[in-house]
Write a protein that binds this DNA or RNA. Structure first.
Lengths: 152, 152
DNA sequence: CTATTATGTTATCCTAGATAACTAAATTAG
DNA sequence: CTAATTTAGTTATCTAGGATAACATAATAG
């Protein structure tokens, strides 16, 4: 055979406009990308996105109970147990039984947890700044968040 | 006690700006919301987002092999086996061993699959139109997709 | 006081994805 | 051409994220 008489069934690119035009598809792709980046940045700290936001929420709302923190993030309290238990074992979070409600665990950051979070926050802010730059500045970032809000 | 002497530790709303301002967090929220809606719309058809896009891709690219379709959607070929097997069992997709490559399965929609997809496509287009309306029109939708692209 | 509700917990299930190992077929190297 | 390598599909297995059910204990309502 000579070289390439006809394209026949060559491995050329597929027609994918019908899928790539879907808003949900693009949202998912972008979200996966951003989370990938997050995981890479926080690999050394062994911190997942959900764990980071839990630490931030506890820092900004010390003494709150598990259910309250979990609810804000849309995490079921059953699953939150394991998450916060892990943070406690690493010495970042403290669960002290509340005096006003002996059922509840009041959540606080330990000293170690505060140092750890300060570092994590700095790394996250750098990452966020990079995302804003990629978007095209603060204005573009605000427009994106406004558009995303409309989907919620 | 009189009524509310001091707020003390009332169940008022938490300070959550630090988490809700995160681009990744908002992306995830929006994406979950859109997928929720998708699942609701396609509940009767028992069709998941990934399955829908697989059907669309096969329809627009008949005769392609599993690996090609899977790759476009970022699905590992090992996991794609189960997915396409399910669609085959439901009589929507047909796997015919390719003549050019006896290892490969050429994918086609069955007649039933084409009818089924026509219906699913109509439902999806209605849902997509609703999302566009929520965003504020086609222009807003295009701006959103452009912004999302910058994160990829 | 009794019945109901709320908090944290355990156990369990389900789904999405990822990895490793395997077969059969195709392709490349020698 | 044969031998080694690569490719397509498959199976089995593992992990992580979420969802549900049931439970003990404590708080609250009737």
């Amino acid at each position: 055979m000579s070289d390439n008489p006809e394209p026949l069934i060559t491995a050329d690119s597929l027609r994918a406009e019908a899928t790539t035009g879907i808003i949900g598809y693009r949202l998912r792709r972008a979200q996966l990308n951003v989370f990938q980046k997050f995981l890479a940045v926080f690999e050394d700290l062994r911190l997942r996105p959900a764990e980071y936001s839990v630490l931030v929420l506890i820092a900004d709302n010390p003494g709150r109970k598990q259910t309250e923190i979990a609810e804000v993030l849309g995490i079921k309290r059953a699953n939150f147990v394991t998450l916060v238990h892990g943070l406690e074992e690493r010495g970042l979070v403290e669960r002290s039984s509340s005096l006003q409600d002996k059922r509840a665990n009041a959540l606080h950051l330990t000293g170690t947890g505060q140092e750890f979070l300060a570092n994590a926050r700095a790394m996250h802010e750098a990452m966020e700044a990079d995302l804003v730059a990629r978007l095209g500045g603060q204005g573009a970032r605000d427009r994106l968040l406004a558009l995303l809000d409309r989907l919620t």
